[in-house]
Design a binder for these strands. Sequence first.
DNA 1: CAATATTGCTATCTTACATAGCAATCAGAA
DNA 2: TTCTGATTGCTATGTAAGATAGCAATATTG
Lengths: 155, 155
Amino acid sequence: MTKSPTLEALQAPLVSRLGYLLRRASTVMMADLGERLAVVGLRPVEATILILVGAHPGCIQSDVGRVLGIKRANMAPLISALAAKGLLEKSPVDGRSLALTLTPSGEAAKVEAEAVMDAHEARFEAMLASRDAASLRTALALISWDTADGQMGPA
Amino acid sequence: MTKSPTLEALQAPLVSRLGYLLRRASTVMMADLGERLAVVGLRPVEATILILVGAHPGCIQSDVGRVLGIKRANMAPLISALAAKGLLEKSPVDGRSLALTLTPSGEAAKVEAEAVMDAHEARFEAMLASRDAASLRTALALISWDTADGQMGPA
DNA sequence: CAATATTGCTATCTTACATAGCAATCAGAA
DNA sequence: TTCTGATTGCTATGTAAGATAGCAATATTG
C-alpha cells in the first residue's frame, strides 16, 4: 500500500525533537483527560477551574484567569456557564471584582473531577520509571515557568 | 475569611499535576518556536513538513499527514500553500497519490528551519540537568505513543 | 469484473484563543 | 478631594486549528 518509507521511518527526524515530543505527549494526555472528564460532564478547563476555586474559596475571577492564562474576555462566559450549571457562585467583593465559591453540587463535581484526574494521571505515571517521573516533573516545571513576564500562556 | 491568595498559592493544586505541566510546558515551547520561526516566515507545522519531506524526498502526502496527525482535508491547503510559496513540489506518483519533494529554495528554508529549531531546543535543554533531559525524552516518547490505534493525534 | 478502499480536494462547522472597546470602579498622585 | 490612570467584568467580533461531510478519480481486492 504505502511506498518506500514506513511511517516509523518517516517521523524519524522529528522524534528526537523535544518540542515535538512535548506537543505530542500533551495532546495524548489532553485527549485522554477530555474523554474521562466528559463522563462527568466537564471539560478540562472547567474541571481545572473547579479544582482551583475549590482549593481557594472566595478567590477573585481575574486572578483565576491570570493563573490559568485565560483572558478576561474568555473568562467571563466560562464562569457564567459554570454558574449557570449551578456549580459555582459569583459574589461581588467590591464594585468590580467577583469572588468565586463552589456551590454544594460544585463541590461534588470538583471531587469527581479530582478523582478522574487522579486516575488519569496514575495511568500515565505508571508507564514511567519512578526516576523518569520525577525528572519529568522537574523538567516540565522548569520549562513551564520560562516566560518573559512570569505570566502564563493559555491553559 | 479567605484573603486574596498569591498567584503562586492559587495554582498550588495544579502544579503537581502531570497533564497540567505538560500542557503548560508545551505551550511555552510552542510559543517560543512560533516566534523564532516567524522570523524565517514559517509556522511550526510548515517547518515540520519541510523537515519531514526534506528527510524523505518523494514521500507521499497522505503519509505525511498520517505521521503528523493532520487530516487529509487540512493537509491539502497546507501543501498547496507551501507549493505556492515555491518551497515544495507535488508530483503524481500514480493516479491519486502525490509525491512531495523540496525545491531548492525549499531545501534552503528547511536548513534555516532546522537551525532555528536546533537553537530553540538547545535553549530549553540547557535549562535541564542532563539526567532530566534524558528522562524527559524517555517519558515523553512513552506517553506520545500511548494511543489506542498507534495513530497520532493532531500535530 | 464488481465491490471496496484510498487519495486529494472543497466546503463548512466547531472551538480555542485573541483583539477592541465599553462602563463601572478602584487607586494613587497632585 | 479631585483628577488620572489602571483594573475588572463584559460583549462583540476576528482568527486560526482542527473536525466533519461529501465528491470524483483512482487503486486494490475478492
